[in-house]
Design a protein around this nucleic acid. Structure first.
Lengths: 130, 130
DNA sequence: CCACTATATCGATGGATGTCAATATTCAAG
DNA sequence: CTTGAATATTGACATCCATCGATATAGTGG
């Protein structure tokens, strides 16, 4: 991403939120940044992924799927372990799928959710390099 | 970790009326777990930590602090970059501090927030081993 | 003590989210 | 085509959360 030096006005609740970037070194009066910071857009994307995981039920669902044979589990086998209603489990699985952590494949009447390889690692990696 | 009661008893008796379901000889009818799954309590704790990070503003705050000299930044230097009100920034910093990602130290009138070493890595680690 | 600055807390508010019951949809079997 | 089962979607509701303005608290200097 490109650096855009922006004179940040006061809190004029305008919509220019994407333009906030790191401070150029010459204007280092207050906070000398030694590295580049995450861009607002990247933070938004990353937060969305983390939010999909930041739920105890969804963490358990991912864990059960990951621990299942072939890293794949049927919905009917996920309802009982988490102890919630079928629509709720379906909702959580949808959130995880839309976030890229699970993938759905239907076989007959059953829907199987499998772990997307590398999805969890791809989310963990930016954390250590933040 | 403790192994929660993984009753792998299938719900086979549900269809015991007259339909003799043909079960494949490999007996992999439902969900054979090959590994241990996360406990509900651990999922709750982990989800709480992830939730503290799953916000674009907080991710940017952590990033700015991490990129600052000495991995430490004053509140007054964090308000402008994120473009939000001072109470809101203070709120986010509190959330991050209570979650163990930041630590606060007051010097004079100013409050400095610094990165807690290893906190991010400790959160990223369980993700890859889920 | 008083004024000023930096930060934290409080109260309110609009929007996001987790949950369920009811219903729709999809698919296999008769 | 009709029935039944597995799953997804919808609508409603309660709760949580990000944000702000107003205010309180703490620390510095006169």
């Amino acid at each position: 991403m490109t650096l855009t030096d922006v004179t940040i006005t006061s809190r004029d609740e305008a919509t220019s939120r994407e333009a906030v970037t790191i401070v150029s070194p010459d204007a280092a009066c207050c906070a000398p940044l030694t590295r580049e910071t995450i861009s607002p857009a990247d933070a938004e994307v990353f937060a969305r992924r983390l939010k999909a995981l930041a739920d105890p039920v969804r963490l358990r669902l991912v864990s059960i799927v990951a621990a299942s044979d072939g890293q794949e589990a049927c919905v009917c086998d996920l309802i009982e372990p988490v102890g919630l209603s079928q629509p709720t489990v379906s909702h959580h699985l949808k959130v995880l799928t839309e976030a890229g952590f699970l993938a759905r494949s239907k076989r007959g009447t059953w829907a199987y959710y499998r772990l997307v390889p590398g999805a969890l690692d791809a989310t963990a990696a930016p954390l250590v390099s933040i």
